[in-house]
């Protein structure tokens, strides 16, 4: 078999083994590569930093298990920054009814416990909501109605002290923080809530979605946005608590190098094949 053919036809099993090794080795032996902070991440951090104590951040954590490793660390880092500044978090989700509410709980609760914040007093999980657009629109003037007056476990909102002063997005929410992997996501929040109610919208997207949000960051409709696990890692650097986002960065680095290496090998094989065909 000529060399170019061998370069073009690397066994898929070898490719898969390379990917597994690229993911595993950095997890066992982290390289600790420095992570620079992008302008978009800094904008998100600065927006939250600019809020006065007691302000409310409305979180919409719209992800499923597939993108959770990218987006959950964003929420954890946000909780850390918000609780340090004594901000309040009202969280909900529209994307995944089974996993979404649990992701919110798993991402915020440990930080809240660590920082001495109480459920119902400093943060609340409203759980999954149906009919995203209609619920969002309703919440502009009637947040309780949109939440069907209960939190994710079915307890009445009237039982939670923080909710006494949070009745509507229009009057009581300072910033909307949306983590998005598709629809419903940032598009719905931007069109139906952020623009009509004049509320700043920020958050983060999975890396596959990140190219789609760029135009809205540029136009100012999104006040910065975190991009994938890299964005989460950058945010963790800013809140000075490296977590799961930073831990995944070395794997991502080696993974990307493997992909680039394979692309180069494939192209060398392709041009060698082309040259051989011309010589014939």
């Amino acid at each position: 078999m000529p060399l170019y053919e061998r370069l073009l036809k690397i066994d898929q099993r070898i490719v898969y083994i390379l990917v597994i090794l690229a993911m595993l080795i950095p997890m066992i032996k982290p390289m600790g590569l420095p992570i620079g902070v992008s302008e978009n991440t800094r904008k998100v951090y600065n927006l939250i930093e600019s809020l006065p104590a007691g302000s409310v951040i409305l979180v919409s954590h719209d992800t499923g298990p597939g993108n959770a490793p990218e987006l959950n660390p964003m929420l954890t880092a946000l909780a850390r920054q918000a609780f340090r500044k004594n901000l309040k978090i009202v969280a909900m989700c529209f994307f995944d009814n089974a996993n979404g509410p649990q992701f919110i709980q798993d991402s915020i609760e440990p930080v809240a416990t660590e920082m001495g914040k109480e459920y119902g007093k400093d943060w609340i999980n409203l759980g999954f909501k149906l009919q995203a657009v209609q619920t969002m629109k309703m919440m502009i003037t009637d947040l309780w109605g949109g939440a069907m007056n209960v939190d994710w476990s079915g307890k009445p909102l009237s039982e939670f002290p923080m909710m006494a002063n949070i009745k509507s997005i229009k009057n009581d929410v300072a910033v909307i923080f949306e983590t998005t992997v598709g629809t419903p996501g940032y598009g719905e929040w931007m069109t139906y809530v952020s623009e009509p109610a004049g509320k700043p919208l920020t958050g983060g997207a999975s890396l596959t979605m990140y190219s789609g949000v760029q135009q809205y960051i540029r136009s100012g409709q999104l006040k910065g946005f975190l991009g994938g696990m890299r964005g989460a890692a950058e945010y963790e650097q800013l809140v000075k608590k490296p977590g799961k986002g930073s831990a995944g960065m070395d794997s991502q680095s080696i993974g990307h190098l493997i992909v680039i290496g394979l692309i180069i090998i494939g192209n060398i094989g392709y041009f060698m094949q082309k040259k051989a065909a011309l010589q014939k």
Partner: peptide, 25 residues
Amino acid sequence: SQPIGSAIYAILGFYIVSAAYRSFK
């Protein structure tokens, strides 16, 4: 639910690497 969802999505990663190697010429 979470491990199944994560596993299905993770499999995509392998396909994407393989597809990038075969198609990016």
